[in-house]
Amino acid sequence: MPVEIDIDEKSVTAYISGEIDHHNAAGLRSKIDEAVENAYPEVLILDFGGVTFMDSSGIGLVMGRYKLMKNLSGKVFVENAPRQIKKVLRMAGIEKMLSEKSGKEVLV
């Protein structure tokens, strides 16, 4: 399960591609958490642009990272989710927030 991670001053961005299911979620989780625990970012950006399939394991992944970032007083943004992936995310109330700054999807 490929994930590329970019770290800058304030944020960690995880570019996820392929399929997010129960089988793949554990590997993704450990790579993302490792980066977050090293960088202590203010914002974690999960870029779903390359995701071709996702089930509730992906919601669990987002919610788990939300808890992690909350402990660090940070935020989680979900970006570029394709239509079908958005449909799954919506089941968890991960809604589009019309934030003037980001226009990104934020976990609410």
Partner: peptide
Amino acid sequence: NGERAGLGFSI
């Protein structure tokens, strides 16, 4: 463990 959403049946 906090990694499952409990949304499988809802989906």
